[in-house]
Nucleic acid binder design. Structure first.
Ligand SMILES: [Zn+2]
Ligand SMILES: [Zn+2]
Ligand SMILES: [Zn+2]
Ligand SMILES: [Zn+2]
Lengths: 148, 148
DNA sequence: TAAAAAATGATATAATTTATCTTCACGGTT
DNA sequence: AACCGTGAAGATAAATTATATCATTTTTTA
């Protein structure tokens, strides 16, 4: 899916939900979509300031907060960075990421077994899960072969 | 296991490894052991300053870094806090946590299935995992029953 | 159109973490 | 015991990440 399609899809989803996909939010969405890896809020801010020189930290954090709430982007807690969601039309899915510590590439996976394994452990303790953070760090296939 | 036993165990492990369980590190270890929940670095710093008024942020972060490297404590990435490991003698285990967003209680679980599920997904992508972050947020059994 | 709600702008500040350089303490060696 | 190298801790500063607050503008609703 190219960026224009992603934008169109996001607009559609927002319309359905009565959420406002404003120009600013679209700009941040697009900037993030141009990366295929994790990006820090301040890196994104620098990019945004090229378009909108008045942008401040709060500007980017507010936009990211909205995009995150809508499920369009995910925050990667272990590296304080953000990444586009692979499949944001399927709302509220558990977020499971493979993060390359060498090149920064992020792969979003979907393992029902993984989700079930967590939930079954939680059930056993009477714990009710609201949100999961699953972030595996290591090296992607490309970076491993590069080392040869 | 009470705190003194934990300290004794940590000393033993360090001795085996040739790592230095210094007075400062023991103090921070003990402070953390007194909590059964997640604690922020600055909260811990405040507690340390009662004993050692010259303690600074770097003091606590260095101690935590050491304790983390030794596997005695875990950093909770999603809330910037630290927690004692349940079973630090079994070194290098994958860290899997249930975190109560109400009372801050942290339960460390050990699910082989969970670990396998992540690894099998990684294998399928040729991704080599070095470190996992698994943090499930929600409400513990106690906090759920308190709401009745 | 008027009022209410939501988003953005502007400014400041808080919270978290790391860097750097110096000094000190410990272990092994001569 | 004196010397030396390494790692730990002290001191200071700064970088990075994130939020609070209040004014202004835009959008929605009535
Ligand atoms: Zn996703
Ligand atoms: Zn890579
Ligand atoms: Zn553990
Ligand atoms: Zn609780």
């Amino acid at each position: 899916m190219d960026i224009e399609q992603q934008v169109a899809q996001a607009k559609l989803v927002c319309e359905k939900r009565g959420a406002r996909f404003t120009a600013l939010r679209e700009q941040v969405f697009t900037l993030l979509a141009k990366h295929n890896s994790a990006v820090g809020a301040y890196d994104l801010l620098s990019e945004l300031q090229v378009i909108d020189s008045s942008a401040k930290p709060a500007t980017i954090y507010r936009a990211l907060d909205f995009l995150n709430q809508q499920g369009f982007v995910h925050k990667i807690e272990s590296i304080n960075a953000f990444v586009m969601c692979d499949h944001f039309s399927e709302c509220n899915h558990p977020v499971q990421l493979l993060i390359c510590d060498d090149c920064g590439y992020v792969e979003e996976i979907q393992s029902e077994n993984l989700d079930l394994a967590i939930r079954s452990m939680a059930d056993a303790s009477g714990f009710k899960i609201k949100h999961q953070v699953v972030e595996a760090h290591g090296y992607c296939a490309k970076c491993q072969s590069d080392k040869n």
